[in-house]
Deep mutational scan, measured.
Amino acid sequence: LEELEQFARTFKQRRIKLGFTQGDVGLAMGKLYGNDFSQTTISRFEALNLSFKNMCKLKPLLEKWLNDAE
């Protein structure tokens, strides 16, 4: 759980530094990986307001997006 919290904080910082909005991330993930995510989902991930199971599902996709975006 602590690792997920740390990743969520780091993800938000890096996303902002790269100049992407939460909506940009959701749209890009849909185009790149075929998984559409709303701005609300990205927001809830960053705020740790998703279930642990959903956080675990999203983490690898967000890590991949972040690596591809950098």
Rank of each mutant, 00 (worst) to 15 (best):
K17C: 14
A8M: 04
G30R: 09
N54V: 14
L32Q: 15
R9A: 10
E5C: 08
F7P: 00
K57T: 14
G30M: 15
F7H: 02
L27D: 12
E5R: 13
Q13G: 11
N54A: 10
F37N: 03
F11G: 01
F37A: 05
D36K: 11
A69K: 07
L66S: 03
S38N: 15
L61M: 11
I16L: 10
T40Y: 14
L62Y: 08
G19F: 02
L58M: 13
L18S: 04
W65R: 01
Q13E: 15
F11K: 00
F11W: 04
K53N: 03
M29N: 01
G30E: 06
Q6P: 05
A8L: 02
L1V: 09
N54T: 14
C56H: 08
M55L: 12
G23I: 13
G30C: 09
E5I: 03
E46K: 02
L32A: 13
N49L: 11
T10C: 08
M55Q: 05
E3F: 04
A47K: 10
L18R: 04
K53M: 09
T40W: 11
S38P: 09
Y33T: 12
E5F: 04
T40K: 15
L32N: 05
F11I: 03
D68M: 08
G26Y: 07
E46C: 00
A47S: 15
R44M: 13
K53S: 13
E46T: 01
L48A: 15
G34T: 07
A47L: 11
Q39W: 07
F45E: 00
L66Q: 02
N49R: 10
A47Y: 03
K12H: 06
I16Q: 12
W65G: 01
L58K: 07
L62E: 00
K31Y: 04
A8Y: 00
S38Y: 03
L50M: 10
F45R: 00
F20E: 02
G19P: 00
F45K: 00
S43P: 13
K17M: 13
A28H: 09
T41S: 09
E5W: 08
K59C: 05
G34R: 06
I16E: 15
W65Q: 01
T21V: 02
T21W: 01
F37D: 02
T21P: 02
E3P: 01
G23L: 12
D36Y: 14
A28R: 11
E5P: 02
F20D: 00
K53R: 12
L48K: 15
P60G: 12
L58T: 10
L61F: 15
V25L: 06
L4D: 01
Q6A: 07
L1R: 05
R14D: 03
T21K: 05
R15S: 00
L58P: 01
A28K: 12
Y33G: 10
F7A: 06
E46Y: 00
K57H: 06
A28S: 08
F7I: 02
F11L: 04
A28N: 07
K57V: 07
C56P: 01
T40L: 08
A69D: 03
K12N: 01
E3R: 05
K64D: 13
N67Y: 02
E5H: 15
M55G: 07
I16G: 07
T10H: 12
